[in-house]
Design a protein around this nucleic acid. Structure first.
Lengths: 160, 160
DNA sequence: ATTGAAAGAGTCTCAGT
DNA sequence: ACTGAGACTCTTTCAAT
């Protein structure tokens, strides 16, 4: 698929990555193009695979998920990455996994209802996975920022 | 605001946090209620602040952002958190910040186009912020999982 | 590639249960 | 609190530029 991304595409991405609820009509007004053009561009972005989907975001604390934690995982051998990762995916509390440089082989993020549930993930779930040497856990006491990356270099702005 | 979240609410959240594009009509069919009921529930979730918004997701690599990295930040004094955080927010490459237990005071995530840009963030941007003692950087070589938390304990399933 | 207009689909409201 | 139907808005298509 061809990826000829111009300024208009980036502007559309910039808006929709922050709020995907805005209508094509309103977005068109902001960007001085017709709703049809917005539609064509978004369709292009979806077909090219640049847009991978749309997700609703919820306030996890209000749903009773009070604990976010990061877990650095040391493996006995780094070649065990795939097999350990495939076990970790089965744990629903794990929402993200990255294969990283540095101390650990795997860096994971978990979301739990409380400390007891986190303890259960660490002690019950992770312990039974073969290949994990040890783990280091960092509990988030406060998430002070969570945003999307700015896809446009701020060369130009658009008039009101 | 009252938060009386029942099973139907959780099912709606479960679907929409994975794909916010599904129509109320289709969601109603899956959950055996009318589109109007889905609408009422979602409106309730939005007004109660449980739903914090909807975001389009993009494949960052396809937009030229090839580097995701995690940065652990040591502060000279942990009381400097607020003042340092307010400086970090100004750096557009930083997309997430957590105040964590353990080694570091601040744990940040950055998204960059390439290693040169990451180096610039570390060397040019972070260096000039007073109060940062040192940093540790972990570059993600692969993101093998990125999903939302399962909000429903899997007690019950719904028939097809 | 963008537009304006028409057709189709979805959201939103409300009276009834 | 849920539903079904109507009113309304938005998406989607398409011929024309």
């Amino acid at each position: 698929m061809n990826l000829n991304i111009d300024k208009l595409d980036l502007q559309i991405i910039e808006y929709l990555t922050q709020d995907a609820q805005i209508s094509y009509a309103d977005l068109g007004k902001k960007l001085f193009v017709s709703p049809g053009t917005v539609h064509v561009r978004i369709k292009k972005l979806q077909e090219s695979g640049i847009v991978s989907g749309t997700r609703m975001h919820v306030d996890l604390k209000k749903l009773g998920f009070d604990v976010i934690a990061f877990i650095g995982i040391y493996l006995e051998k780094s070649s065990l990455y795939d097999v350990v990762a495939s076990e970790l995916v089965k744990i629903p509390e794990i929402v993200r996994m990255n294969y990283t440089t540095g101390n650990w082989s795997i860096f994971a993020e978990v979301v739990c209802k409380d400390i007891a549930q986190l303890r259960s993930v660490l002690h019950d779930e992770l312990q039974k996975i073969k290949g994990i040497e040890r783990t280091e856990t960092f509990i988030s006491l406060e998430e002070s920022l969570n945003r999307t990356v700015k896809v446009m270099a701020d060369e130009e702005n658009d008039a009101p």
